[in-house]
Design a protein around this nucleic acid. Structure first.
Length: 260
DNA sequence: ATGGTGGAAGGTCCA
């Protein structure tokens, strides 16, 4: 402490190495959790990040899909990854700081287009994943952060239109309920909403919009959760919306929080 | 009701 952490779905780390370097240079988080790195670990870039002071990379990856990575300028020790849903997907990676703070980086399945687990196996997978996240959360102890692309926008102000999004995967009642159960199971504090309770907040804007910034049809899919002992230490949080407007961007913006 | 864009892999899946 003090500590700055960030989460960012990067949508290919190899393609956006320069954007990550720019973000690290400008925001200077101590720890950055990345999702959708879309690469085997041995093919990830490291030198440029190391030159900026980020000499630690703890990652899991597979060819073309998923992939999670923790970049850090603090010393970290890897923790045992969790194989949610027993598929061997690279959707979780974790590490612990020298101070004993556990950091869990998660990439929850998007869930496909049809919000019906009986007809859409991807949606069933998403719900099962969040259920397992609840089971795991019940057993967590000690100062812990969960960061990542949880692919669910829980609140009415976490989506551009609550009415429109009720039937769209990421904001359906069944997902929001599962999300709430996982949050309650770990007594997790949603750090972003704890510090910014009012107003619309988004961390993702579709590539398909003609003008993402003007239409501003966003969703808050990216989250930072803190355990009960850590939550009172949260000082600031921001969503780096401008990053969504950088050249050749990810469709997600980073979320950054400080603790102290 | 549909298609809109983007990444990686590789002749299509995923988001």
């Amino acid at each position: 402490m003090p500590l700055t952490v960030a989460t960012w779905n990067i949508n290919s780390l190899r393609l956006r190495e320069a954007l990550v370097a720019r973000f690290l240079a400008e925001a200077r988080p101590d720890v950055l959790c990345l999702q959708e790195t879309k690469s085997p670990v041995d093919k990830l870039p490291t030198e440029r990040f190391a030159a900026l002071g980020y000499g630690r990379l703890i990652a899991r990856g597979e060819k073309g899909y998923n992939g999670v990575a923790i970049l850090s300028r603090l010393r970290l020790e890897p923790l045992q990854p969790i194989d949610f849903c027993g598929r061997g997907d690279a959707r979780h990676v974790a590490a612990i700081t020298e101070d004993g703070l556990a950091i869990h980086n998660l990439y929850v399945p998007a869930g496909g287009d049809t919000p019906d687990p009986a007809r859409n196996p991807k949606f069933a997978h998403k719900l099962a994943f969040v259920d397992e996240l609840a089971d795991w959360s019940r057993g967590v102890s000690g100062p812990t952060l969960v960061l990542g692309d949880l692919n669910i926008a829980p609140g009415e102000d976490d989506v551009w239109s609550h009415k429109h999004m009720l039937k769209v995967v990421s904001h359906t009642p069944v997902e929001v309920e599962a999300f709430g159960k996982a949050q309650a199971a770990g007594r997790w504090t949603d750090v972003t909403r704890a510090l910014m309770p009012q107003g619309k907040l988004y961390s993702w804007w579709s590539y398909r919009a003609r003008d993402w910034e003007a239409s501003d049809r966003g969703l808050r899919l990216d989250h930072i959760w803190a355990s009960p002992d850590l939550a009172p230490k949260a000082r600031t949080v921001r969503i780096a919306r401008a990053v969504r407007g950088w050249p050749q961007p990810s469709d997600h913006a980073p979320v950054i929080a400080t603790f102290g």
